[in-house]
Design a protein around this nucleic acid. Structure first.
Lengths: 174, 174
DNA sequence: ATCAACTCGTTGCGCATGCAACCAATATGC
DNA sequence: GCATATTGGTTGCATGCGCAACGAGTTGAT
């Protein structure tokens, strides 16, 4: 069962021979690398949809997607959930507001934070975008069985939870 | 079994109610999103190791890691394998060469491409880095059983292979 | 009530990134 | 053989990013 990545790299079978004292990172099975590569592949592909068709950056799409699913949420929530820097979210929010796709109303109980929500126009875009995103995902995961898909999500869940714990408190969202 | 991500977002159980005509992307089970978040978490954590301790950027680390595993490879190979833009790799290679960590020799058979390899100093850094990277990975995946780890890699394999096919030819590496 | 510590969000700055144009070398068509 | 297309790699440019500093609001201690 030949796989793609091997075929790219392994012109000869020229993998460095392993000496006991010199551990080698095998990129093909090194999860941080593999996960990043896979994430890039999916990001790039998905980004085409919402960039070309709707003029949204990745952070902007995430804000819209979050507010599409949760009626309202703060910038901080969105940043933490998506492991984005707060300045990234701030700028995405600013541009979406300027385009009239989202609105902010400051929370009476804590006037530092502002609750964000989609405008009617914003929701229109979301409702155009969501089916495309779901269709993309479906194509993307179609190589896996239903069971495998669920399994994958649960593995990713557990890894993400664990990774968040490993990350020192402040480091993730700046 | 409460999970981390839910606890961040689900203050109330305020998920938008689903109407038949308005599909909603559930971010918690939307794989492109989840994979990117997980990749960010691991990248950020790993990056601390090779940035702070060895002054390497992510692309630079990838070049070093590739040449540590495969004796020599071209910039193009490295870019394609890691789904990086060729200009990103070009600059990483330039800086590594300037620091004396890698060397290039142009291929006699095709003088457009240059084979890259670690210098002695480069290999020293690799050999210091590799065990740390492996130790990090071990901690990272320690929430999974051995079987689950293998399973995950194989799922990622299949998804990556499939995603590479979906990506229009030129789009991935510019 | 006051002051320090903390939090949400914004912004100036420097740097890295992707894009597109480019050069040199090779491959392809005629 | 010659012109054209393609490929590996570099670079100028504009954009986006993370960082760190900041303002405004809140919390907690005294």
């Amino acid at each position: 069962m030949r796989n793609e990545l091997m075929s790219i790299m392994a012109r000869q079978t020229a993998t460095k021979k392993q000496e006991a004292s010199n551990p080698t990172v095998i990129l093909e099975s090194f999860l941080p690398y593999r996960l990043n590569v896979l994430a890039s592949l999916t990001s790039n592909a998905l980004a085409q949809i919402y960039a070309e068709r709707f003029g949204l950056s990745i952070p902007a799409w995430r804000v819209v997607a979050t507010l599409g699913q949760y009626e309202n949420r703060t910038a901080r929530d969105i940043a933490a959930h998506g492991v984005m820097h707060k300045s990234t979210v701030s700028r995405a929010v600013a541009s979406l507001e300027q385009r009239g796709l989202i609105a902010r109303r400051s929370n009476k109980d804590d006037r530092r934070e502002e609750l964000l929500e989609l405008t009617a126009e914003g929701r229109e875009i979301y409702e155009a975008l969501a089916p495309e995103a779901l269709a993309f995902e479906e194509r993307f995961v179609s190589v896996l069985t239903e069971e495998e898909q669920k399994l994958l999500v649960s593995l990713v869940d557990r890894l993400s939870g664990h990774a968040r714990q490993l990350a020192p408190e402040g480091e993730v969202e700046g």
